[in-house]
């Protein structure tokens, strides 16, 4: 029983990170029907930026809590803004010119940009995996703080993942549902020409979408760094595949679906890690993807694509 709960807690933490990345896929797909294959690399770029801020600040886990928190907040903001800006720029430089091109053209461009960004990553921090400073103590909240008699670990890094991710998810959802710009995004996603006739600047709305997706990926970059304590230039590839699968699983284009898909995949991955073997996990995750595509192509919460007139 304890092992199951432990596994689910690990899965949940991983799932939240996947969910943050999955949102970027689903937002962009929803608005321009592009699977942004470079999105995993945006996440990598965000984590590199976070690492740069933390190493420049020169803090480690021996510094006072206050100083570490300040640096973490700064690193979070820097990673989000940097990843958001890069995502925005890639759209501006490349995808926007291909708005009226056949759908394969931006797709291949995205694959190309994924290589470009990976090479920027190598140039920036080298090809070897890097240690990400463990600024969060591995304290087990259940035993060390609450003095429970249990073998289950719920650590501060796990709590941190949830404390940062959940408000971001809620904020994004609120933004898209209730703000003027969020409504412009939804209208553009549902009918681009009609949105333009309402006076919505479609190009600006699409830019905003890339920016938002990048912000979320940047946050995931910092969170994952502090949680798993390792970054490497090609970390975006597998994380991106997981997140893309999560987005498809939830119903691509649907924000809630992406979050649920991410959490589900995190749980499935953790169960497979602990009850099968870790090397089976990718196979199981992609088997899930295949099953979804075969039996429910629109995903768990997906819309019928046919309602576009």
């Amino acid at each position: 029983m304890d092992q199951l709960i432990q596994t689910l807690l690990f899965g949940l933490s991983n799932g939240f990170v996947i969910a943050l990345i999955a949102l970027g896929y689903t937002l962009v797909y929803g608005i321009i029907q592009l699977i942004n294959f470079a999105h995993g690399e945006i996440y990598m770029i965000g984590s590199f930026m976070a690492l740069t801020v933390i190493t420049t600040a020169g803090v480690s886990w021996t510094d006072p809590v206050g100083a570490r928190l300040v640096v973490i907040v700064l690193a979070l903001m820097a990673a989000m803004l940097f990843a958001g800006s890069i995502n925005f720029l890639v759209d501006r430089v490349a995808y926007r010119r291909l708005r009226r091109a056949p759908r394969l053209a931006p797709l291949i461009t995205a694959i190309g940009f994924s290589f470009v960004l990976q090479n920027i990553g190598i140039w920036w921090k080298g090809a070897r995996p890097l240690q990400f400073p463990a600024l969060l103590p591995p304290t087990n909240i259940l035993t060390d703080w609450l003095h429970l008699d249990t073998t289950i670990t719920f650590s501060i890094p796990m709590l941190f993942v949830m404390v940062v991710t959940v408000p971001l998810l809620l904020l994004l959802r609120w933004f898209v549902r209730n703000t003027r710009l969020g409504k412009a995004m939804r209208a553009t996603a549902q009918d681009r020409d009609a949105a333009a006739l309402m006076g919505i600047d479609v190009n600006r709305t699409i830019s905003l979408t890339f920016l938002l997706g990048g912000l979320m990926a940047g946050a995931a970059g910092l969170i994952n760094g502090l949680y798993n304590n390792q970054v490497v230039f090609n970390m975006g590839f597998f994380a991106g595949l997981m997140a893309f699968t999560a987005a498809v699983l939830g119903g691509i284009g649907n924000l809630t679906g992406a979050v649920l898909g991410g959490i589900f995949l995190g749980l499935v991955g953790a169960l497979s890690d602990s009850y099968l073997q870790a090397q089976w996990t990718p196979a199981i995750v992609f088997a899930v993807l295949v099953l979804v595509i075969v039996f429910k192509p629109s995903g768990l919460l997906g819309e019928q694509v046919a309602d576009r007139a």
Partner: peptide
């Protein structure tokens, strides 16, 4: 402009 085919936002 009320366009051809109505073009309302279906999920709003």
């Amino acid at each position: 402009h009320a366009p051809e085919g109505r073009r309302v936002f279906p999920r709003m």
